[in-house]
């Protein structure tokens, strides 16, 4: 089935964000009614899938459950994390509440650790304007290192720009260069060390730094996933032998 997104028609765009950021509104605005809600195999939480056409390309959009973090241990967060980490989306939109940016940055920084092809969608701009909140969008994009698209999904504002930006990211014409958070030196050193080992061990597509961070943080629920990634389509022994020779 579509557990890791690899069998979804490409290109696949993942939609992530905190709860209450108008993520579903954006999803509905982008896909119209071309969607179906399906339960994920063995999971408790619904993930809606939909699609839209832009510039001759049909893009599959996956609406992930709203989460505040990727490091906590709720079913929603596990699904979101697993999809971003192992589903290998062609691009990830992080929907951010413009009225409450600081709080929403937590998730975007974490997602930027997992994926590089990230686009931030600064939603609820209409509400921010109404409250007199002003955001320097170019500066935000510079600081994050990823494209930032201001939008008001309820009014349909910013949708075309978002589709265009995604199109360019998917086509490889824009290369987001996320600038994730650097942790304290001790933690950074531990992460780097472990990431090097993981890079040796796994085949392409696994983000060693992020997995290392999860493991050091004691998140054991990721282990079965890594195991499949390390063995993947090859037979077990095969991988180990090949990996030991590669470095």
């Amino acid at each position: 089935m579509t557990r890791d997104g690899t069998e979804l028609p490409r290109p696949v765009v993942a939609l992530a964000g905190n709860p209450n950021t108008g993520k579903s509104t954006l999803f509905n605005a982008l896909t119209g009614l071309k969607q179906h809600t399906g339960n994920w195999p063995g999971k408790t939480v619904a993930c809606a899938r939909g699609w839209y056409r832009y510039n001759g390309q049909t893009v599959t959009l996956v609406d992930l459950p709203g989460t505040y973090s990727l490091l906590s241990d709720s079913p929603e967060e596990r699904i979101t994390r697993d999809f971003l980490c192992f589903g290998r989306p062609d691009a990830t939109v992080v929907v951010v509440d413009a009225t409450c940016l600081e709080r929403n940055l937590n998730l975007i920084f974490q997602i930027m650790e997992v994926n590089t092809r990230v686009v931030a969608c600064l939603n609820l701009m209409d509400e921010a304007r109404r409250r007199g909140i002003r955001i320097d969008v170019p500066a935000l994009a510079r600081e994050l290192g990823v494209p930032v698209v201001p939008a008001a999904a309820r009014r349909g504002e910013g949708l075309t720009l978002l589709k265009e930006t995604l199109h360019r990211v998917i086509e490889g014409r824009i290369h987001p260069a996320p600038r994730p958070v650097s942790y304290d030196p001790e933690l950074e050193a531990a992460v780097a060390e472990l990431a090097a080992d993981l890079a040796v061990l796994s085949r392409e597509g696994l983000n060693p730094r992020w997995v290392a961070l999860c493991l050091i943080a004691g998140d054991e629920s990721i282990i079965p996933k890594i195991r499949t990634f390390c063995n993947g389509k090859e037979t077990q022994g095969d991988t180990h032998v090949r990996n030991r020779v590669t470095p």
Partner: peptide, 26 residues
């Protein structure tokens, strides 16, 4: 064993600084 604390502290410190630079709240 306080890895989560370290991560959260670093992320929110950066978020605070970033928000202070790009957001103007009335």
């Amino acid at each position: 064993g306080d890895v989560h604390d370290r991560i959260a502290a670093a992320v929110y410190k950066r978020a605070e600084m970033l928000a202070a630079r790009v957001v103007q709240t009335p």
